[in-house]
C-alpha cells in the first residue's frame, strides 16, 4: 500500500510530468510563465483544484451514474475553481489580476478533467489525493522551470514571490525580450521538451 502510494505520487514528477509528457493543459503553461512567480501561483491554484476534485470524485465514484459522469465532474471542478477564484481575489489580489482569465479557465484545463476520469473515478480517496498531489506538484515545477528560463533570458531577473526579484543580472545585461513575448513561449517550451526527450532517451 505504502509503496504504491509513493508510486502514484512520484509518477507525476517525471514519468507523467503533465505539460511535457502528457502534452495536456498547455494554455496556462504558455500564457502565465512570463515570471517564475506567476508560474508558481498558477501551479498552486491548479494543484488545489486537482487534489480536491480528485478527492470528491473518488468519494462519489459509486454514486455518480456513468452516463452523466463528465457533467458531474465538470460541476465538481467548477465549484473548486470558484473557491480558488474568490480566495485569490481576497488574499493575493495582485497575482489574481496578473493571472486574469486563466484562473476561471482551470475548469477547462484538460489535466484536471483527465485525472478525474482516468484515475480518481477508479481508485480510493487516499490514492486519488496522492495522484492529484503528485501531478499538481509536477505541474507547478514545470511552470516554475519554464518561467525561470523565460524570465531569466527575457528580463534578467528571477522573481519567486511578492514582486521583488531574488536575483537580478547586472545593469549591462541585454535582455532578450523575445522570450517574454508570445512567440518566445512556444519556442522555449519546444526547446525544453526537446531537452527532456534527449535526457529521457538515454
Amino acid at each position: 500500500m505504502a509503496q504504491s502510494l509513493a508510486k502514484e505520487f512520484t509518477k507525476g514528477l517525471w514519468a507523467e510530468l503533465p505539460p511535457f509528457r502528457l502534452v495536456l493543459g498547455l494554455c496556462p503553461v504558455l500564457a502565465v510563465t512570463k515570471t517564475v512567480e506567476n508560474g508558481i501561483g498558477m501551479g498552486v491554484a491548479t494543484t488545489f483544484v486537482l487534489v480536491f476534485s480528485n478527492l470528491l470524485v473518488s468519494l462519489l465514484r459509486n454514486i455518480i451514474p456513468p452516463k452523466v459522469r463528465i457533467a458531474c465532474y465538470i460541476v465538481i471542478i467548477a465549484t473548486f475553481v470558484t473557491i480558488v477564484e474568490l480566495v485569490m481575489q481576497a488574499y493575493t489580489y495582485p497575482l489574481f489580476l496578473k493571472l486574469g482569465i486563466f484562473i476561471p479557465l482551470i475548469v477547462v484545463n484538460c489535466i484536471v478533467l483527465g485525472r478525474a476520469e482516468a484515475f480518481a473515478s477508479k481508485n480510493n480517496p487516499v490514492m486519488a489525493i496522492a495522484d492529484g498531489l503528485g501531478i499538481g506538484i509536477g505541474f507547478t515545477l514545470s511552470l516554475a522551470a519554464l518561467g525561470a528560463v523565460r524570465e531569466f533570458l527575457g528580463a534578467g531577473t528571477i522573481t519567486i514571490w511578492g514582486g521583488n526579484p531574488v536575483f537580478a543580472m547586472p545593469e549591462s545585461f541585454q535582455a532578450f525580450s523575445f522570450m517574454v513575448e508570445a512567440p518566445g513561449a512556444f519556442v522555449a517550451l519546444g526547446l525544453m521538451l526537446a531537452c527532456m526527450n534527449l535526457i529521457g532517451s538515454k
Binding site: 502534452v23 512567440p183 518566445g184 512556444f186 519556442v187 519546444g190 526547446l191 521538451l193 526537446a194 526527450n197
Partner: peptide, 9 residues
C-alpha cells in the same frame, strides 16, 4: 510536438 511548438513560435 517539440518541432511543432517551435514552428508555432
Amino acid at each position: 510536438t517539440s518541432i511543432g511548438l517551435i514552428t508555432a513560435g
